Simulated scan of single mutants.
Amino acid sequence: MGWLIGLGILIFLFILFVAFVGYKMVKPPRLVEDWTPRDFGFEYEDVEFTTEDGLKLSGWWIDNGSEKTVIPLHGYTRSRWDDVYMKPVIEFLLVEGYNVLAFDFRAHGRSEGKYTTVGDRELLDIKAAIGWLKENHPERAGKIALVGFSMGAIVTIRSLAEIEEVCCGVADSPPMDLDKTGARGLRYFANLPEWLYIFVKPFTKLFSGGREFHPLKYSDRIRKPLLLIAGEKDPLVMVDEVREFYERNRKINPDVELWVTDAPHVRTLKFHPEDWKAKVEEFLRKWMA
């Protein structure tokens, strides 16, 4: 009898542990720093806009006098203050002459929201950003492009299929199989075994209320220009997974490109800045003309 009680206690403690891990996965730490676009010599405006489900999101609007606006989208656990890719990409886009609307996804940075859904309800966030732009600066919304990293890359891909106003997009290190990436993320972010994910996943859905979706399925829906960037040293997203999306999408989309580098996750811009900028500059110039 005693061993049954002991087993019951172990099972109870295991459930508590995986519930805690699931909670932490959907409630990332908030990254807020003190740099602003003024550090690059550009004036900016602090802005807020509200999503369809009632969350206030916080961001920067940098009016560069163009009719073309690019919205950079950060990844999971990061924010517009990320200095690995968001800071250099914002500066790059401004130097290239684009207006920039940078904001924090729900549950990140200074935006409202208790939980992230890693690409599900974040689609409402980009819809709110584009709605704000069209309402407040319609003359700056002639062309709207997205440049997304990791979770932001997922949102970029979904937006190309679901948001009419988005003309083209760059998806850097996009997870294509969220279960595999989630399992790898346990090891990458928390040094936990990947097999634990099958027990953690139900709690992430329970806490966040996020809907399960499969980015790979969007390969059959996108017919707009898309640049995919994948890194061979990425511990979270395998190149073959991105290549599968590319091979499926190019059957219906002649304007999809795949660029494979030797970088880790979302690090091509850091390790090969000039190549990244040249590739993205060429892509945006071509499709935002």
Rank of each mutant, 00 (worst) to 15 (best):
P88Q: 04
L94V: 07
A19G: 11
E96H: 03
G41A: 12
V26R: 10
E33R: 15
I90H: 02
L73A: 08
V21T: 03
W60I: 04
E96T: 05
F20M: 10
L31V: 07
G65S: 07
W81Y: 15
F92V: 02
V84A: 13
Y23C: 05
L57N: 10
P72V: 07
D34T: 15
R30E: 06
R38Y: 06
S79H: 09
M86W: 05
D39M: 12
N64V: 00
Y76N: 05
T50P: 01
P28Q: 12
F49Y: 10
L73T: 06
Y85W: 12
G54I: 04
T51K: 06
K87Q: 12
D53C: 03
V21Q: 04
L94S: 07
V84F: 14
F49P: 07
R78L: 13
N99A: 00
P72F: 13
E91A: 13
I90L: 08
T69H: 08
G54V: 01
E91W: 11
T36E: 03
P28A: 09
W61N: 01
E52Q: 14
T77Q: 07
E96Q: 15
W61V: 07
Y76G: 03
G22N: 01
I62L: 12
R80F: 04
G97E: 05
T50Y: 02
V95T: 15
F92W: 15
L94Q: 08
D39L: 14
W60L: 02
R30Q: 11
P37C: 12
P37N: 10
N64C: 02
E45M: 13
D63W: 07
V32T: 15
N99S: 00
G97R: 13
L93Q: 13
W81S: 05
I71R: 08
K68M: 01
H74Q: 10
A19T: 13
D53L: 07
D53E: 14
P29S: 13
W81Q: 02
G75F: 11
G22A: 05
V70G: 03
R30Y: 08
I71D: 05
K27A: 15
Y85M: 02
V47A: 04
L93S: 13
L31F: 07
E48V: 14
K87W: 08
G97W: 12
T77R: 14
E33A: 14
D34A: 14
F42E: 04
G41D: 09
L55A: 05
E43T: 15
K87E: 04
P28M: 10
S58E: 08
E33I: 00
L55H: 06
E43C: 09
K27N: 15
D82T: 01
W60M: 02
V84P: 00
D34K: 14
N99L: 00
R38D: 07
T36C: 08
S66E: 01
S58V: 05
E67W: 00
N99P: 00
P29E: 12
K87V: 03
G59S: 09
F49S: 07
V89W: 14
G41V: 13
F92Y: 13
Y44V: 09
E43I: 03
Y76T: 02
I71L: 14
N99F: 02
L73H: 08
D34C: 06
V26T: 10
R38V: 11
I62C: 12
D83C: 00
S66H: 03
Y98Q: 09
K24T: 15
A19R: 14
T36Y: 06
T36A: 09
D63G: 09
K68C: 00
G22E: 00
R38I: 10
